[in-house]
Design a protein around this nucleic acid. Structure first.
Lengths: 253, 253
DNA sequence: GTTGGAAACTTGTAGGTACAGGTTGTAGCT
DNA sequence: AGCTACAACCTGTACCTACAAGTTTCCAAC
């Protein structure tokens, strides 16, 4: 009944998340104390704390010194995987993902691209422009630049149907970190053509730099979503706050 | 030279962050091992790990079992405080914040408001519409609904000049958690009038539900930012991912 | 009934130990 | 030179103890 993961605290995470989803600890209620949970699951208080830390990062839990923890929300079943991969996300909401390649070229990096990918200007990069569709309806334009060592592997990927990042993982390329910048722009003529909408429509722009475990850049992407097709959600708290309000960087193309 | 915080690991966080900012450990380099850092700072390995965990949550650090930690990025100096409070954020980037109250009324909650604030329809709420300005230029419309116990305290706040959330903290109301949903919309006629822009311009919409430590709703807000005035930035990783891509909720006004 | 304060409880911090499992570098062999 | 195998090293997990600091509960005094 417990899961197959080797880490004990992940077991506890799964079981607690399930208990919350099952209504054992509804939102607004208070969890039993760490001491009690430790006894209940047969682990040490440290291990329970480690598990609760994960739930707190997910925004399910509030904690306050001296008082028992409060359940804030019901768990959602998404992961970094779904964030990284349009395909994975699409499938998780029951839609059929696909892609239409508009541009795929190998060319020397310009200044901005070189800077974003940690290369020298002129180094070869692979540029890919794809329109992404949910069950046939265009919802996003993806304009991405990859360093050559990544782009070279595209020979093995069916770009119209497969998930790049899922396939690259099989070749040892792991998208481990990402920095996202989100703002709003109006659709220009090309956006309008590709997304089959009117020019001037509000689009959600996500600029993203992804790296591997060592921080080596793997992609630099500028995605534009149709406004009413997607939204991004973040939970945060005083204790841990990854979301930042910024002046818009002057990287805009 | 160390800071005034009582928690030892926060001391280590501050000193490590400073060391990274000073170029002692530049991005891409590897940190000394936990053991070495522990000796260096005169604390236990546990305490160092606690500190490194904070830096990892900030996206400054990558870690991989067996290998030393990699520095990913230079630290930025923002906090949840700056995210919660427009005023605090504005001051942190050297601008002068102000506000122009458009609507301030006490009225019964409608269905959506009651649901968002955990009240019964008809319960009294306080609605506030403000235009927020940076050094005199309108950049945001804030449409917020507060439960009465919070709105009642507005008598003590100068809404045109002061930060609500800073003042409320003095009365024991702490904005501890928030859930943000971000998407793009076009400016309608009222948006255009208040922000002094053309109708149809792309706006960044942030819908936010803030709660206190116990998860009791404190505000429900729908903010609209001028597209080129702000952007939101998030860093995430396989290990910890607070950002979620969503279908847009059907809460839209 | 209300209020004040002490006691019990709960989370946060700091330290320790031990071992598992991954990575890195070295030394020696082919 | 290149490859392999091993040793050293490093992070991740799990357990333990002790105390600090905050909250809740409850009882006694007013």
């Amino acid at each position: 009944m417990t899961d197959q993961s080797d880490a004990l605290y992940l077991d506890v995470v799964v079981r607690l998340r399930q208990a919350i989803a099952d209504g054992v600890y509804p939102p607004g209620s208070r969890l039993p104390s760490e001491h009690v949970l430790a006894q209940e699951y047969g682990v040490s208080r440290n291990t329970v704390r480690r598990a609760l830390e994960v739930l707190r990062e997910d925004g399910l839990m509030a904690s306050q010194q001296g008082a028992r923890r409060t359940v804030l929300a019901l768990p959602r079943l998404q992961s970094f995987g779904e964030l990284r991969s349009f395909s994975r996300w699409a499938r998780s909401i029951g839609e059929v993902p696909s892609g239409r390649v508009d541009v795929l070229e190998r060319r020397p990096a310009d200044l901005a691209e070189a800077h974003a990918l940690g290369l020298e200007p002129g180094d070869p990069v692979v540029r890919l422009v794809r329109v992404r569709l949910l069950t046939g309806v265009p919802v996003m334009i993806e304009r991405t630049v990859y360093p050559e060592r990544v782009g070279a592997l595209f020979a093995f990927v069916d770009l119209e149907r497969e998930s790049i990042c899922e396939r690259l993982e099989e070749h040892g390329i792991v998208f481990a970190h990402a920095e996202h910048t989100i703002d709003a722009v109006s659709a220009d003529a090309e956006d309008a053509r590709l997304l089959e909408i009117e020019a001037g429509t509000a689009l959600l722009r996500e600029r993203r730099r992804s790296t591997d475990h060592q921080g080596r850049p793997l992609e630099w992407s500028q995605d534009r979503y149709v406004g009413d097709a997607v939204a991004f959600t973040i939970r945060n708290s005083v204790a841990a706050s990854p979301l930042v309000r910024d002046r818009p960087p002057a990287t805009g193309k």
